[in-house]
Design a protein around this nucleic acid. Structure first.
Length: 584
RNA sequence: GCGCCUGUAGCUCAACUGGAUAGAGCACUUGACUACGAAUCAAGAGGUUAGGGGUUCGACUCCCUUCAGGCGCACCA
């Protein structure tokens, strides 16, 4: 099924042929690749085979290259193969091969680009994981979109993906939440509460929680003591907040498969179990850590703690798993949580975290090595902060003052699609400027617009075609079987080559788990299409619709259709709907 | 002090995990609308990939080192 990836097809062919050579015994072919050359004048494809094999085989690369060129030349789809530079073998395909790509794209539709390289391997990707203490805001949004897009990409690449949300409903933060809600509750019952004290959550949104509580329970908790109301209010608030967060996420098309919460991990014994595993392996001991160097530590006092021998697994220092009072250190539930994931069968886990958690993987990794017996792997994608700009000015926000831009507000202002796309226009670890004015700007400077515009133009061509030839059948079924031999201009072939690279991009982006590459690829496709479009202005033979040349027009329609489909396919990974028309 | 991340054109960013002459956009200069949507396109100029060393046929990419910035560094989340 990987037949969609034309580069892989030739790579496999070449490797098979090479392995049949009389010198092939004991040679490592793993580094042989067939890829698009940087410079199109070099041909359609290039292989490094001679360069990676010459030493092993004991021949000079150019000579070996000649032999490889001959092998390639034997393939019926290869028009010409030749050695270039230090020993690259460049080759050109017969144009009919490219035409088949269009046919393929049209018949696969947006499934074009799907890969089997994931081999249905299961992968758990944890993202968002905001604690249920407030609504989703800008700070959460990038990680949420990053995780979701990555999940889409891995799914397309053939992995069996579980989308997971982990939240903390047991720590001190949710107690603070409950206390704040209690105050708001009193307020809703007419009690004057004055200012929200320091240390509690000042945000207005908790008023709604309080109102809902009044509606359910009336003044039931008003006269009760904290020990009585704390737990029930906490449960109520957490539930309310989680519902709210899920509604927020739904606005940008994010839904998780599994929600795991910290309290379950603690209460159902998973935590104890995880600890016992470490204990049984003699990895737990009581000891005193040296004071951390270079950091001001006035209140540091040497005290024996329950420690985990993480240094045995390459960590810099052993890690305390219990506090001095004997209760669990904050990291222990997280460790147990990953133990839980491994117990559920996940050997590959991805956590999407904010950059302020850097160092997290380092602390968790040693335990994963233990629980997974060396077979499990955790990849952490850290994402840097988002700076918000509006009308040319940086928007400051702080949780303290309750002055935060919520996801809900963002969606209302610029729409979910623009947010999803724009958040993916940078590599995760570099800062992102989210400019409210720019994401809605109608210019090529705005990648969202630029790509959507290309798609809309494709659709426009079809609208025009229907007007020009009202009785012509231009359905996909017909277009897939159209004679495309007339698509032989350099411009036609160039764009097809680009489209043919989509399966390859999906595969490599998934392997590197770098979903943002999809964005850059889409911009490339859009640029190529816009360029082709404009050429038709100067050269009538390059127009898509040529009234007196129906065969060529049909072939071009097939080409335009495949451009639209590849863009759609990419946008699908982004979680963005392609538009058919741009409106002012 | 230690760890992680970042440093690429004036600005904002890419570069298919080691490939050929490091690419786009913005800004700048110059062109293209009686035309499938000019919300676009074409051309020009712009670089010691922070500096230095190493590995090899070949380095932005891997290793070492220096510099600059960001984040994090018991028993807080």
């Amino acid at each position: 099924m990987e037949q969609q990836n034309i580069f892989l097809l030739f790579q496999d062919y070449l490797k098979t042929e090479l392995q049949a050579q009389d010198w092939a015994d004991g040679i490592d072919f793993s580094k042989v690749v067939v890829e698009p050359p940087r410079d199109l004048s070099h041909g359609d494809m290039a292989t490094n085979a001679a360069l990676v094999l010459n030493k092993q085989v004991g021949r000079n690369p150019r000579e070996l290259g000649e032999e490889i060129a001959e092998i390639l030349q034997k393939h019926t789809d290869v028009e010409k193969a030749e050695v270039a530079g230090p020993g690259f073998v460049n080759f050109r395909l017969v144009s009919g091969k490219w035409h088949k790509i269009i046919k393929q794209i049209i018949s696969y539709g947006t499934a074009y680009g799907d890969s089997v390289s994931g081999e249905k391997k299961i992968v758990n990707i944890e993202y968002v994981s905001a604690n249920p203490t407030g609504p989703m805001h800008v700070g959460h949004t990038r990680g949420a979109i990053l995780g979701d897009t990555l999940a889409n990409l891995l799914t397309k690449a053939g992995f069996d993906v579980t989308r997971e949300y982990y939240f903390n409903d047991a720590g001190t933060q949710v107690d603070v939440l409950a206390r704040t809600v209690h105050l708001r509750y009193l307020e809703a019952l007419g009690v004057d509460i004055g200012e929200i004290p320091d240390g509690l959550y000042p945000g207005e949104y908790l008023k709604d929680v309080a109102l809902a509580l009044v509606e359910r329970d009336g003044d039931k908790w008003q006269a009760k003591s904290e020990t009585e109301w704390l737990a029930p209010l906490r449960d109520f608030s957490v539930k309310y907040m989680m519902d709210m967060i899920q509604e927020d996420l739904d606005l940008i098309g994010i839904q998780h498969d599994v929600f795991t919460n910290e309290r379950d991990i603690v209460e159902n014994g998973t935590l104890e179990k995880a600890f016992k595993v470490l204990e049984d392996l003699d990895l737990i001991y009581t000891g005193t850590l040296p004071p951390p160097k270079g950091k001001e530590m006035e209140d540091w006092t040497p005290v024996p703690l329950t420690l985990f021998r993480s240094t045995k697994f390459g960590d810099q220092t052993d890690r305390p798993l219990k506090k001095r009072d004997g209760t669990w250190a904050y990291i222990m539930p997280d460790i147990a949580y990953h133990y839980d994931k491994i117990s559920r069968g996940f050997e590959w886990m991805i956590d999407v975290l904010g950059k302020d958690h850097s160092g997290y993987a380092e602390r968790i990794d040693p335990t994963i090595a233990v629980f997974g017996k060396g077979k499990a792997k955790l990849d952490v994608v850290y994402n840097a902060i988002v700076k918000v700009y509006k009308d040319g000015e940086a928007v400051k926000f702080s949780k303290r003052s309750g002055n935060i831009i919520t996801l809900r507000e963002m969606v209302a202002e610029v729409g979910a699609d623009a947010i999803r796309f724009f958040m993916m226009t940078r590599t995760p670890d570099s800062e992102l400027e989210f400019d409210f004015n720019k994401v809605v700007e109608k210019s090529k400077d705005n990648p969202v617009f630029y790509v959507q515009y290309a798609h809309a133009r494709c659709c426009s061509v079809f609208r025009n075609a229907e007007e020009m030839w009202p009785d012509m059948d231009i359905s996909n079924a017909v277009l897939a079987d159209v004679d495309m031999s007339s698509l032989d201009s350099i411009d036609d072939l160039e764009i097809i080559r680009l489209l043919a690279g989509w399966p390859r991009l999906v595969r490599s982006a998934a392997e590197a788990h770098e979903a943002h590459r999809v964005v850059f690829y889409l911009q490339e496709v859009a640029a190529a299409f816009h360029s082709f479009w404009t050429k038709g202005r100067g050269d009538a033979s390059l127009r898509f619709l040529i009234e007196d040349n129906i065969p060529l027009s049909m072939a071009r329609l097939a080409l335009v259709r495949s451009v639209a489909l590849v863009i759609s396919s990419g946008l699908e990974v982004m979680g963005v709907k392609p538009v058919e028309e741009m409106h002012a």
